[in-house]
C-alpha cells in the first residue's frame, strides 16, 4: 500500500474544467479549496442572475417567464450541487481523520 495514493484525490479537480491545468502540481487540499471557492463564486453569480431576472419580470420587462424559470432552476441546481460537494468533502475528511495512523 502506498501512502502517496492519497494524492489521487487531485483526480477530482481534473474532472471539472475550472482548475484543469493547475490541479496536478498543487497539493490536493489547496486545489480543492480553490475549486470550492470558484464554485461558490459561480453559484453566487447564478443566484444574482436569478434575482435580476425576477426583478425584471416583476417590473414587466425582460424576455418573460421562461427566462426567469431557467435562471431560477440553474441557480437552485447549482446550489444543490455545491451543497452535496461540500457534504461529500466533509464526509471524506472525517473518514480520513477517523483512520488510525
Amino acid at each position: 500500500m502506498q501512502i502517496s495514493a492519497i494524492g489521487n484525490i487531485s483526480g477530482l479537480t481534473q474532472s471539472l474544467p475550472i482548475q484543469g491545468a493547475q490541479a496536478a502540481p498543487q497539493s490536493p487540499a489547496v486545489g480543492f479549496g480553490n475549486l470550492l471557492q470558484d464554485m461558490v463564486g459561480k453559484v453566487s453569480e447564478l443566484q444574482n442572475n436569478a434575482d435580476q431576472s425576477i426583478q425584471s419580470l416583476a417590473t414587466g420587462q425582460g424576455k418573460g417567464l421562461h427566462e426567469v424559470m431557467l435562471a431560477v432552476e440553474k441557480a437552485s441546481i447549482s446550489f444543490q450541487m455545491l451543497t452535496q460537494v461540500r457534504n461529500k468533502a466533509v464526509e471524506a475528511y472525517q473518514e480520513i481523520m477517523r483512520m488510525p495512523v
Binding site: I54, L57, A58, V68, F79, Q80, T83
Partner: peptide, 20 residues
C-alpha cells in the same frame, strides 16, 4: 408563477439551513 418562485426561494433557504 410568483407564488412558485417564492416557494422555491424559501425551499432554497430551508435547504441551506438544513445543510443537505
Amino acid at each position: 408563477a410568483t407564488v412558485q418562485i417564492l416557494g422555491k426561494k424559501f425551499e432554497g433557504l430551508k435547504q441551506a439551513i438544513r445543510g443537505t
